[in-house]
Design a protein around this nucleic acid. Sequence first.
RNA 1: GUGGUUGUAGCUCAGUUGGUUAGAGCGCUAGAUUGUGGUUCUAGAGGUCGCCGGUUCGAAACCGGUCUUCCACCCCA
Length: 454
Amino acid sequence: MKPTIPKGTRDFLPIEVTKRNYIFDTIKTVFETFGFQPIETPSFENSSTLMGKYGDEGDRLIFKILNSGDYLKKVDDKLLMDKNSVRISPKISEKALRYDLTVPFARYVVQHQNDIVFPFKRYQMQPVWRADRPQKGRFREFYQCDADVVGSKSLWQEVEFVQLYDEVFTKLGLTETIIKLNNRKILSGIAEIIGAKDKLIDFTVALDKLDKIGIEGVTNEMLGKGISQGAIEKVKPLFNFTGDNLEKLEQLKELLSASEEGTQGVEDLEFIIENIEKLGLSSARLEIDVTLARGLNYYTGAIFEVQTDKVAIGSIGGGGRYDDLTGIFGLKNISGIGISFGLDRIYMVLEELNLFKRVVLPKPTLVFINFGEKEAEYCMQTIKKLREMGIKSELYPDNVKLKKQMNYANRREIPFVVLVGEQEMQENNYTLKNMHTGEQTLCNLDDLIRLIKS
RNA sequence: GUGGUUGUAGCUCAGUUGGUUAGAGCGCUAGAUUGUGGUUCUAGAGGUCGCCGGUUCGAAACCGGUCUUCCACCCCA
């Protein structure tokens, strides 16, 4: 039988895991510098926790877990005969793999509200699963690294998250990232002044495609969704929305002056832009983008998305403010804001740009050649001492041909090999071979340590 | 969910309009070299040509189905 893994999943080689850990560690360090604490949640949740939170499209992409036991017995015959998957699946599946980290976090906050100190700042780095069709930068199992704050409406949080993005990508050596910023209130305001408030979702989805399908395409899609020609005329300025952030803010102010909510959104943006301007960013660029809509329905304020134009890949991070996420689980008036890093896409970007130069695969500094039982025992005594000093070392486990043992050291790029045969044992010394230069030295233990440390 | 693409040795890939026993490079094993790796040379092992069915005297090649790979759309990180 030929071994395979499921569609959209991957195995990782040691070097790949090492590189991934480097990204994890970098993000984790920055999260903790900003005052976030780690939590974890189970890989699967009750279906009722997840279903209906991501829209119809999202529900379709959630991996459902079959109930245990004779699960078909409980389903009534009529339902079975109908063969309607959507109606049968809740009967035979009560658990599902998590689709993101935000909704499980909302559940977590509500469930542990008495143990949590608010405002609660948490970070979480775990895999999520989506039953998507895999393609470039898109997998069915991938890692998200999230940081969220719940219990604070302060716009300083938005400011801090922009700084956090900047800090992480700067540390990873990925410069000139574009942090796109928008506000759901602005989108609502726009929809309001064109009199298509009920079509907000359709409107934003269409507007989001501006750079892909152009003005004409967006206009056609909006018309197709029942948005009037007159309404589209009113927002035409947005189709040629240029200039720097301050100029954009002025244009928005004017456009949205009739909408209370829209005006509020502009003020929010203004606060973030102004303060980031004052504080400065290391390598990222903050950019207002009114076409930024994001599919997730739960954002209510700021919306973030991070892109790089150095590699053709989707966004490498995203997030935003959600005022009522915990409300679904019964805890009202708790505002949350969070951002997410797409680890797997960041990996692909760093790989493509050759930014893993500093990452080295962990490996022993020296390997002891195995010449037999007696010699192995003698070597293990030395290895024990070396390990106590933090020197990574190992014994080749089997007494096989020297050639094979040397080849092993060579393949693993282990810098030193130690040969201890009968003669060395008697004289209580070691033959140290530098695999790079081929040079060999006969020495005692102290000299050995000194040589490998230099 | 829609459209396209891919599948031949452990890996990367050749394989002529359908024709004897399906090849190469790398890797692996052994030897040249019994206490010395990288280089070189020699030899060897390794294949249900993704799977099922069909066309044909004859299929790795043609046809249908299915699974898989990768890509685009939808949507998303």
